[in-house]
Structures are given as structure tokens and as C-alpha cells.
Amino acid sequence: MRQLIALAGILLLISACKHDDNEPIRKFTSFQVDSLIVLAEDPTAVLTPANLTDNDAINDYPVLNILATGNHDETVQFSLISETENIQTGDYSSTIYGNAFQLGFAGLDYNLQANFNYGTLNLHITKVIDTLIEGSFDGELVDTTGTISPKPLVKGFLRVVFKRDTL
């Protein structure tokens, strides 16, 4: 009888600890620049399809634009170019024109960025499920005004759910 009661107790405990599959996915980006740790919850992400109807070669690839506001009112922006219709797992570097990162500060006239011309961004997308994207990133951010020296971007993580834009 004791064994039956113990088994029932264990089963009750296991069922009480069951994960709720209806729980919303936490969307965020977080990273460190010098001693500043930025956490930006609920970023917006929009995948804009390629526009092959004009003569502008720059918009011939789909672009994922991510915008978030950090815990100290920082503005965080990513742009990622995809060679396929959807964003895929793999590496996205600022050495490819169109891949970029920008960090702006409320009340300051400068921002830190990594793009084709300045700094470096190394973003590694590790998971893509439907419209969910997860990845990690690092690099070096540059202030194009020359006000501050280049800063390392480390311990970056990203989880977003994107919407598709229409042309």
C-alpha cells in the first residue's frame, strides 16, 4: 500500500511540474559593450521580401529588420540580408553589404555601429523554426563621429519572432 501511495505522490508531483506549451515565447536581445549590459525585451522583427520589379540591385534580397529598445532606452537595430526567401541557420557577417548592427543612446549625438564600412558583426543563427529565430553574436562597434574609441560587442544573444512584410 505504501508503494502505491508513494507512486501516486510521484505521479502527482510530475504532473504538477508539467511545462505549459501555451506559454508565450520570450523574445529579446541581450549583449555587453564594455561594462554596459543591454537587455531589450520584445523586439519587433519584419522580413521584407526581395523587390525584383525595379532597377535597384540593393533591394534584390530579403531583409530582416529588427528593432528593440534596451533597458536604459538604448536603440538597438539589426539588418540581415538573406540569399534565400527566408532567413536560414548559419553565419551572417558585416562583411556582406546589408548586414548591420547599430546601438544608439538616448540623449547622445553618437551611436555605435557595425556594417560593411565600419566595425564588425558576426551573427550566428542557430535555430529557425517557422518565424522564430535564435542566435548569438559578437563583434566590434565603431562610433563614426570619432567621439569614442571602438568598443567590443560580446555575449550577444537574440530571439525574435518575425512578421512578413508585403511590397
Rank of each mutant, 00 (worst) to 15 (best):
D91P: 09
L52D: 12
I10K: 09
I37S: 13
G70W: 01
S15N: 15
A114P: 12
R26H: 11
S30M: 07
L123K: 01
G9I: 08
T89S: 03
L167M: 07
L12D: 08
F78E: 04
L80W: 01
A8L: 11
Y110S: 13
S94W: 05
I87D: 03
G119L: 01
N71D: 13
I66M: 00
N55I: 11
D138M: 01
Y118S: 12
G146Y: 00
V46A: 06
D130H: 07
A40C: 00
H124D: 11
T126D: 01
Q102M: 13
S149W: 00
P49Y: 06
F78S: 09
Q77D: 11
Q32P: 11
I125N: 02
L112M: 00
V63Q: 12
L13P: 09
K27V: 10
E134K: 00
K155C: 07
T29V: 03
G135V: 06
A57G: 09
D20G: 09
V161H: 04
T69V: 14
V128K: 05
E74T: 09
F116I: 08
Y97T: 13
A45Y: 04
S15P: 08
I25Y: 00
D165S: 15
A16E: 11
T145E: 07
N115Q: 09
I66A: 00
G104K: 07
S79K: 12
I129K: 04
N117P: 05
E134T: 06
E23Q: 15
D73L: 12
T147A: 15
A68P: 11
L39T: 12
D20Y: 01
N65K: 14
G107F: 01
D91S: 13
L12Q: 11
N51H: 05
D54G: 14
A100G: 13
I5S: 15
D56C: 04
S136H: 06
A45K: 04
S94G: 10
S149A: 15
H72Y: 10
E83K: 14
V154Q: 14
V160E: 04
S149Q: 14
L167W: 02
S93Y: 06
I148R: 10
R2T: 14
P62V: 03
I125L: 01
L13K: 09
S35C: 05
L108N: 13
E140N: 15
R159T: 11
K18Y: 07
L64N: 04
V46T: 15
D56V: 10
G146K: 09
R26P: 08
T95M: 09
N51V: 10
E41Y: 00
F162W: 02
S79L: 01
E83P: 12
N55P: 06
T75N: 14
I66Y: 03
T84Y: 02
Q32R: 15
Y110C: 08
F105K: 08
N122P: 08
R26V: 13
A68V: 05
H124N: 15
L52W: 04
P49V: 01
T44R: 12
A50M: 03
A16I: 10
